[in-house]
């Protein structure tokens, strides 16, 4: 068995989710190759070659692959992937965008967001917003899979010395082009990789009040998240949303402030090790999953918490 892992990167640095994906590949067993596709991606390829357990790094460096346009990358992955038993990508916005296109080109069903490996052809994945876990078996000659990063502990980023090989194939479908992007700036740890996450919901009342959470987060070295209600109300940008339709996190500590705990929000955080809920409504569903619940006004509790930690 040989497994192809698609590297997740922004053109300059290798994203940590790649390490979790390689960990899933290691659980399946077999040789692991990593594909780095993009433009001017020498540094990413170098980082990929250092990942523990990686046998070979394939580098497709071409203008057509800049910005990870799926119309151009999917044919490349499908072509390379024919020789592999498994193709894996992280269930990031890129992975979700590209991989189903690859699966359809290979005429196989995809398995999305696996959280564990049962055997080389059998995997588990959450369905119905995490309210059920399905065990799925694939009979496809090439198994195409996206990996939920929080389901797998990352492999070491250092210690490997994989051979680096250039891929000459160029696919340019010419049906799409990149126009621009607007990335949210943040000095805090990345939401999906943070050890502690502090999230606010509708109970924060406005965007300005999130300063209380930022102050607490900075003291804890935490990332700040939000519920959909807080995003829709315009308190914070949408890339902070935690939930079924936002980001899936599983930190050591998740502090939910002013969040009622709708099914869709729980889908994004209920695998956290310890959950703390601060809410003034003691009937809020969030208390059913919280390890520690505090029924209190968040505007008094959060500043006090910040002082005490």
């Amino acid at each position: 068995m040989t497994i192809l892992v698609i590297a997740e990167h922004d053109g300059k640095t290798l994203a940590p989710a790649t390490l979790n994906t390689v960990a899933a590949a290691a659980k399946i067993g077999g040789d692991i190759n990593v594909l780095v596709a993009g433009q001017g991606i020498g540094a990413v390829a170098e980082a990929a070659a250092k990942i523990a357990g990686v046998a070979k790094v394939l580098v497709a460096d071409n203008a057509a692959y800049a910005h990870q346009l799926p119309e151009n990358i999917a044919p490349l992955v499908a072509e390379l992937g024919k020789g592999y038993s498994h193709i894996l990508a992280a269930a990031t916005s890129n992975g979700k965008n590209i991989l189903p296109r690859v699966a359809a080109q290979l005429d196989v069903d995809q398995i999305s967001e696996i959280i564990s490996v049962v055997s080389a052809d059998t995997f588990t994945r959450p369905i119905y917003a995490g309210n059920a876990i399905a065990t799925v078996q694939s009979t496809a000659p090439v198994k195409v899979i996206t990996v939920r990063a929080t389901g797998f502990d990352p492999v070491a980023a250092e210690g490997g010395s994989a051979a680096v090989e250039a891929v000459a194939a160029v696919h340019d479908a010419g049906t799409s082009s990149f126009v621009g992007e607007e990335l949210a700036k943040s000095d805090r740890p990345e939401l999906t990789a943070a050890k502690i996450v502090v999230s606010g919901g509708r109970g924060m009342q406005n965007g300005d009040n999130f300063k209380h959470l930022y102050a607490l987060a900075d003291k804890l070295g935490a990332a700040v998240g939000a519920s959909r209600a807080a995003v829709d109300a315009g308190f914070v940008p949408n890339d902070m949303q935690v939930g079924q339709t936002g980001k899936i996190v599983a930190p050591q500590l998740y502090i939910a402030v002013g969040i009622s705990g709708a099914i869709q929000h729980l889908a994004g955080m209920k695998d956290s090790k310890v959950i703390v809920a601060i809410n003034k409504d003691e009937e809020a569903p969030i208390f059913q999953v919280a390890d520690y619940g505090l029924v209190a006004d968040l505007f008094e509790a959060v500043p006090e918490l910040e002082k005490l930690v």
């Binding site: 910005h67 990031t92 890129n94 799409s176 082009s177 990149f178 126009v179 607007e182 940008p237 890339d239």
Partner: peptide, 10 residues
């Protein structure tokens, strides 16, 4: 909507 923010494609 992408992980770090927003991207526009044509």
């Amino acid at each position: 909507e992408i992980d770090g923010g927003a991207q526009t494609v044509s």
